[in-house]
Design a protein around this nucleic acid. Sequence first.
DNA 1: ACCTGAACACCGTTCAAGT
DNA 2: ACCTGAACACCGTTCAAGT
Lengths: 208, 208
Amino acid sequence: MTRTSLTREEVLAAAGSLVRQHGPAALTMRKLAAELGTAVTSIYWHVGNRESLLDALVERTVEELGEIRPRGRTPAARIVSVARTLRRELRARPHLITMVHERGLTERMFLPAQEALVHEMHAAGLRGARAAQAVRAIQFQVVGYVLVERNRERAPVQRPAEEELWDNAAAEQDPALARALGSAVDQDRLFTSSVRALVAGLLPADPD
Amino acid sequence: MTRTSLTREEVLAAAGSLVRQHGPAALTMRKLAAELGTAVTSIYWHVGNRESLLDALVERTVEELGEIRPRGRTPAARIVSVARTLRRELRARPHLITMVHERGLTERMFLPAQEALVHEMHAAGLRGARAAQAVRAIQFQVVGYVLVERNRERAPVQRPAEEELWDNAAAEQDPALARALGSAVDQDRLFTSSVRALVAGLLPADPD
DNA sequence: ACCTGAACACCGTTCAAGT
DNA sequence: ACCTGAACACCGTTCAAGT
């Protein structure tokens, strides 16, 4: 009644599910073996060691990242839509994205998005080194934003909360600002408006 | 000839030096004890456990972060200078900054910078919720950028390097762009130009 | 009040031995 | 070709015992 013997595929699937749910720290070789019902050492035969297991998971994530379809009428709108799609896809795989990044594969993962952005920069009239700089600015903005968000969400309650920090001088001069800085960040809105501002600053003034 | 007994201060100093040099993963209670010439268990008496030891180091880092002095003539220039200072200070403490972030103390660490930014937004004519949004956009941009840079520097060589990725269609249409995207990122320049673009997009059009 | 060693429950990895 | 248990060198933490 022994099942077909353990495969590399099974190991990767079980490991991937552990990482997706609880992060890489939760992936121990012993727990994984228990889950698979084998001896710890069998895993080593199939995937080498823990590090190359994680490498394989990351490789898979990079391949999974789908195509980017820009939406919208103006180049600016289409660029913003690429950024938003990127953010959504990255946020869906928080732990794996961090690992992709730590392994220096971010650039490769971003290739489809990069091509889409290049296309839009051309449509907007940017060329050469300036277009390249603009593409990278967007790319850094998106990745940076997602990393910041990840950390914010993983972090425990801010102590002290921003509210307590803002019952000071500025509050009397500009109560609306104090209130805004004292309340939680609306990350969706902040992201979109930041990207819009960046794009507006990067693209040449509207020609029509 | 026994020295004055072990102090909490000594423990923190030794731990801080280990973390600054090799990151938190390199801080093991046993190594720390060896460094201090005591039994492992003595450390527990002084600092509780590993986690609260790291907490204490982080607390210290937050306090250490100095004041921000904006430089430049226009509000836009002064905002860019704040962003650049912030980036420099964060980059000087890479491991500790990551830990501050993981512990959700980023906001508190940023308070002085936030106050400076609010001041400049007012000078530029922004008020209320819009000014708050702009302050946070800058803040996210800087932190995000530094996190991305950290990861890039820690990462091994990109494989494949971006060069190999860019011998494709776009290369013939716009060789200057292909060359630019195929060469290494000049992070200093990219940061400054991105912040300038963001600020330009955030501030109201120049009134004079 | 401060320090100690022994012990516990975990890790990743290697290796000789099995089938 | 694939799987195994024993063993090694590490971890963080607890605890009873010392001074």
